[in-house]
Design a protein around this nucleic acid. Sequence first.
DNA 1: AATCCTGTCAACCGCGGGTTT
DNA 2: AAAACCCGCGGTTGACAGGAT
Length: 344
Amino acid sequence: MGRSPCCDKVGLKKGPWTPEEDQKLLAYIEEHGCGSWRALPAKAGLQRCGKSCRLRWTNYLRPDIKRGKFSLQEEQTIIQLHALLGNRWSAIATHLPKRTDNEIKNYWNTHLKKRLAKMGIDPVTHKPKSDALLSGNDAHQSKNAANLSHMAQWESARLEAEARLVRESKLRTFQHRLGRPSTTGFAISASAAQLVHKSPWNSVSNAGFGDLESPKSTLTSSENGIGPSSMPMTEFPGTASASSETGIIKQEGEQEWKGLGVAVSSTNLAMESNNSLTFTPPSIHEIGNTMEDGFINLLLNDSDPSLSDSGKESDGNSRGNDDKNYWNSILDLVNSSPSDSPMF
DNA sequence: AATCCTGTCAACCGCGGGTTT
DNA sequence: AAAACCCGCGGTTGACAGGAT
């Protein structure tokens, strides 16, 4: 279809915003809410394109934005979610209250990515750059990788839906605050509606996950709209078709979760009275809890010696083990949740 | 003091997806 | 059904600040 860029209009200002422009934008949004961004600049008396206004608002002027240094918990959350979701900043941002996707993206690119690289870990795949680790117990590692991939697929789909709900909710809250009904409506999108949360996440307060909801979700048996095809996945060793290639044989009673390709144990599934299937994947809390003592601390300690009680350990030793610890800690999270995460 | 280098981050750009006409 | 429109996302850029030489 080809759309013309919105910012190539002659006379529209670009570049840094002035305090006066900020004031105009704020005043307008407080008065009228943020309905149509395209129409907003003219109405607000701004020589900017709507896109620029939206960006300024969402990344800077919004009242619920927290600025400044990222906390350790926020760093943990970013790293964990990035391992699961990759560069899906908006999805990651939904779990970092008051942080924007742009800010998270910048922080990742300028801080966390480098920290991982420094440790010899590929920040894209979260794999050690040398795959030596896999040379030993291939089958075991690959199995774990496959499980992790399945978990990531689930989390990705869930977060995607959750992100929509959060966005809609935030908009509603803001407009409610302004005493205005939504101009956009709040019909839950189809994919979001497919993931109906059943219970709150446990109230673990670490890692900034306190606001997360339960991943236990209900999918009607006919639904298949959520699939890997629409979800770029974080890649782990042996991910592709790992279940068949690595000797993971579906146990009796396991079912292939249509659309996700996830091997689902019968213990994960319960038929609800309305003929929908309830599926209980591992919670991200469990991920966070398990990771916390392992690779997250490793990362944090690496970045800030003051936070580490190491130094007891020779540098050579710790450095040599860093990538192994990192990888093992990710695998540990898979292995460590057998009882309450029947998925694995 | 001047210049260069590096890091940071606000802002821009292009694209894709969803909605409306 | 197709075109037009709008919005949001993720990658990238460039201005600026601060440190190193």
